[in-house]
Design a protein around this nucleic acid. Structure first.
Lengths: 142, 142
DNA sequence: ATCCAATTTAGAATAGTTCTTGATATTGAT
DNA sequence: ATCAATATCAAGAACTATTCTAAATTGGAT
């Protein structure tokens, strides 16, 4: 697999532009942060992490950058109940499993080839453009 | 003093107690409101509706009542993205389809006998206690 | 009737997010 | 390269949904 975001030294290279969004210094750093630790950070988590590289960045800018990335389909915004939004660079269709004992959020993928209509009673004529699935429970170690 | 046991003809009778929760005048009216129009109202929507029967009720009380009803498993709290929470008296397991063109929210039931593991790749050892499923799209009339 | 606990109320407080405004940076045309 | 137009950023104010606080009211038990 070719990883064109990684350079021999290990530092990620993020192109000038992604999906029509110009990668400014701030957007690049925000995106890099999301790619680095895929632990579903909140905007504030991202802010704290990005500050190490760009100490003068503001929280408002982090919100702006995240919004721009989300609107261009580069990043996904994930909401759990009424908690702070979390952000995730995995834009492939997937759901989440929230382990209540550890607080860790795991990505959950759909089995290939399954169709919504296979397991749901949908009102006739529904055209689904977006799926949001969140599971909660425990990850029993054995 | 107001007799809170008297039920005007044609209105729903809600017992003294449900699932261990004492039905006060306010809780009863909040619950009655949810049962009457199952359109997934917000706390504020409920507030406005309940005010017609109990003009002196406060928004804080509506929040208190909804919280009590939710915690006793009588009502379900439903969150769509970062919007206000919505409340639903259907506590059977179900998901939601949000029609983006009309804003209407439809309940969606799971087909009988389907299992999560049938369509999801779950990390081994996951014990799921709670499922939240939201679909978005349009309901094309034909 | 009286007491105690539960509930309700009104408004203050909170938290996450969005908005506003002025500054700064970038782009495109000359 | 210069300049104007546009986009982005920063700081803090504003906003909104919700929760908290404290005092008043209610309800049930004695």
């Amino acid at each position: 697999m070719v990883d064109n975001l990684t350079v021999p030294s290990g530092e990620m290279v993020i192109p000038e532009e992604i999906s029509g969004l110009r990668m400014t210094r701030q957007r690049r750093e925000v995106y890099r942060t999301l790619l680095q630790d895929r632990d579903h950070p909140t905007a504030n988590d991202v802010f704290l992490r990005v500050k190490e590289a760009l100490p003068s960045i503001s929280l408002a800018t982090v919100y702006n950058c995240l919004e721009a990335l989300v609107q261009h389909g580069i990043v996904r915004q994930v909401n759990f109940e009424r908690e702070s939004s979390r952000f995730c660079p995995n834009v492939a269709e997937h759901g989440h499993f929230h382990d209540r004992s550890t607080g860790v959020i795991h990505d959950v993928t759909f089995k290939p080839g399954v169709n919504l209509a296979d397991f749901l009673d949908l009102p006739p004529g529904t055209v689904v453009t977006d799926i949001e699935l969140t599971l909660r429970g425990q990850l029993s170690s054995h």
